[in-house]
Nucleic acid binder design. Sequence first.
DNA 1: GGTCACTAGCGCCCCCTGCTGGT
DNA 2: ACCAGCAGGGGGCGCTAGTGACC
Length: 133
Amino acid sequence: MFKLSSLKHRLRTRSDEKRHVCHLCPKAFRTATLLHNHVNAHTGNKPHKCSECDTAFVTRGELSRHRRYKHTLERPFKCTICEYSSVEASKMRRHVRSHTGERPYPCHLCSYASKDACKLKRHMVTHTGRILG
DNA sequence: GGTCACTAGCGCCCCCTGCTGGT
DNA sequence: ACCAGCAGGGGGCGCTAGTGACC
């Protein structure tokens, strides 16, 4: 849904696109917070610690997701076809392909097609003997 | 105009399981 | 029967972008 405040925010942040440059690599970001998270990933600094298992993360979002996976067991994404539910929408999309049979990742060396980009990569090892990339 | 919090999205790695073909 | 190779399904995390609220 369109929101005026959102548009204003985009317009005002557009002017300074990616001017926050990492001093450890060539990457640049729109905001200082994004840069800060990125630098923490470089340094291994993980300030967001789980209160229940002491696992630590770079961002609060990662911690939030971890808590759903490990502690709250909250699975907001429900499959409409079976009983499966998931923590993440992307996992649900991947699951739904097991119902639809959709295989969007074709192998260019054989007739195989995968439902999952990662599985295609693994499959390629059977052709090349090694991981590509 | 900046920061923060949250969510969404893509990608990667890993594990377990079942099937299949060779021995 | 046993084993190895492979694919299917899924869990968990790394990282970045988008968005809305607040200062």
